[in-house]
């Protein structure tokens, strides 16, 4: 399946391909992002990394680090 992923910290959009039945955790592993450091939204809803994803889901990764 193909996904649009927006990585907020880098202000960057990425297209990612993953096998069917993957979870958000698989996506984070592929992107080398630690789940502890991001809040994930899937099609506009906040979800935990155990959620399954399907083709064309819109994923946003919001960094929880806010130094300052």
């Amino acid at each position: 399946m193909k996904l649009d992923v927006f990585i907020e910290r880098e202000n960057k959009k990425e297209k990612v391909e993953l096998p069917e039945g993957s979870t958000l955790k698989d996506l984070l592993t592929k992107l080398k992002i630690n789940p502890v450091t991001v809040v994930i939204s899937k099609n506009g809803e906040v979800v935990a990394e155990i959620a399954k994803i399907k083709d064309k889901d819109k994923i946003e990764l919001l960094s929880v680090v806010s130094g300052g």
Partner: peptide, 13 residues
């Protein structure tokens, strides 16, 4: 959700 430009590469970071 933005970060202070001085935070990156700090010891705390």
């Amino acid at each position: 959700f933005i970060e202070c430009p001085n935070h990156k590469d700090s010891f705390r970071d």
